[in-house]
Design a protein around this nucleic acid. Sequence first.
DNA 1: AGTGCATATCTAATCGATTAGATGCGAGAA
DNA 2: TTCTCGCATCTAATCGATTAGATATGCACT
Lengths: 330, 330
Amino acid sequence: MRKRPSTLADVARRAGTSTAVVSYVMNNGPRPVAAATRERVLAAAAELGYRPNRIARALRSRTTGVAGLVLADASNPYFGALARHVERALERRDLLTLIGNAGYSAQRQRHLVERFLAAQVDGLVIVSADSVGDVAEVAEAAGVPAVYVHNGPPGAPVAAADNQDAVREAVAHLRGHGHRHIAFLTGPDDEGPVGVRRAAWHAAVPGAELLRSDYSRAAADALTRHLADAGTLPHALVTATDEQAIGVLSGAWARGLAVPDRLAVISLDGTPESAHTAPALTVTEQPLQAMAEQAVALLFDEAAAPLATRAALIPRRSCGCGGGDLDLLS
Amino acid sequence: MRKRPSTLADVARRAGTSTAVVSYVMNNGPRPVAAATRERVLAAAAELGYRPNRIARALRSRTTGVAGLVLADASNPYFGALARHVERALERRDLLTLIGNAGYSAQRQRHLVERFLAAQVDGLVIVSADSVGDVAEVAEAAGVPAVYVHNGPPGAPVAAADNQDAVREAVAHLRGHGHRHIAFLTGPDDEGPVGVRRAAWHAAVPGAELLRSDYSRAAADALTRHLADAGTLPHALVTATDEQAIGVLSGAWARGLAVPDRLAVISLDGTPESAHTAPALTVTEQPLQAMAEQAVALLFDEAAAPLATRAALIPRRSCGCGGGDLDLLS
DNA sequence: AGTGCATATCTAATCGATTAGATGCGAGAA
DNA sequence: TTCTCGCATCTAATCGATTAGATATGCACT
């Protein structure tokens, strides 16, 4: 027996005013209201448990207070962590987050954008993996601002880290441990940032071995076992993503190959997960929070230039660092 | 120079009809439309790139096509996986998903529910950890259906698995490996399902050692190192969650203690993550997809009774199973 | 008293889609 | 021919909040 939620008109009636005054009070509106009246209105609103209908407000003011977030793959902790930071940044600006998982499908990504636009979102944040659709155009046509995170098409605003620099650091670090042949594990379709990472690696270690697997633990795990069985597993490896690194760790363990002694690994994402693997992963840490913050700022023209932030190397055990006590890892 | 998106009225004008017919055509409306007219309308709509304004529709029809999902902790893969399944189930019913992360705070949970209600969601899915707020009442008062997943207050509809059974299986399995003293790692504030798990363990292994840590890898990792240093680490352990189990694995590795030889571990969540740890975790797998599906069905009165689904044990390496080839793990 | 002006409030149009009730038109029945 | 259905459309009210323009009230000053 739920009663109909009370409306602006109900409050007005109860306070003995017009709906306009009530509106003015609720929003500290465009016009002032006498203190006494304001009190009456607030009291009436409280008594009725009035809550403004944001749908109605949205219809009139053409702004919903909702933003859309399209994720390339929600099951990947890298994107998951990014999503949390984006959500937080949006919330700080009083926006709700509509979320959608594209599952690496350009078609689904497109579909989600369409749905979000139909829902009249105030902005779109698109976390894209390798292939980026022409999603910006659609949003542009609808007059909705859109930004990309991690990867985006040439013209569009993108919040991303400096991937080249990260790879160089990783390679240099492994060299410091005495490795000469440093392989690289890339993705199935490395056009975006992973492509950049691969290119940077290729430039740094020309002629070294390039491996390839899906962006899933299972795939990297299977590949590692396969290489171990064939006896062609490299001794030092940079993986494009944490997911792959974790799969490699799992596969190596299953085949009884010690990390870092038999195989040194550095991963390039640096998700929170990487700190508590066995062994802990050495990574270059993408500044996920900064990227998310910048993306949202970009969305509202708050920031000027999309400055590429650096990904710092965090030495842990998997590269060969820290035989001793590493309790103090972050 | 984006042009104003075209409205129903624009289409009507172009097709030379009233807005009513256009509406009837768009929704296969409550009234029939002559075939010829329908064609004209569809053509006009296509030419103008008309897309219905869901906000306006929502205002009139009092249904937004949006559901709210409140997560206890988005950074926990268990809840993350649940979220993906819920989103998929909602999408299958043509609903968008508004997501919010409560971060284990009852206050934030409450706040999110309020915001979602203000956004006029058609339904609420609440994934709660240990402490559950009186969130159902608020939703009830607003006339919005709400369901809980994983954990919920007594009266409310809850989609959850049979936790007792899972614990019994885990304990029995470790007994099968010859263990007698089987410790349990619980959470900081185990009222909900984790409390049920702890109780079931206590009944099955009275007098065994109870450990306690936060639901984070870092906390379980630290605890494990601490116990290892003190020489009081048990030989068999059931952890309440995968996150904790992964932390334990990490801590054990750091202290050079072999899993499963020195320490056998079984975890009770069974997230996808658990298949690719080093070593792979033996788990009881919560039927996340079924739970999500059931929750959404419950939300719309589709299902009759909230039948508790079973959590099956998946033997992997961490309990002591499979010294040989385990390539076939799921 | 009359005029001017500022302040407080009210009236009503508006956002875009939905839909009940009114209307128009032609075919068939009387 | 006239009346009656039935179908296809149109007209206009409605959802709830916002806000520009109109109106009312009170005070100061000549």
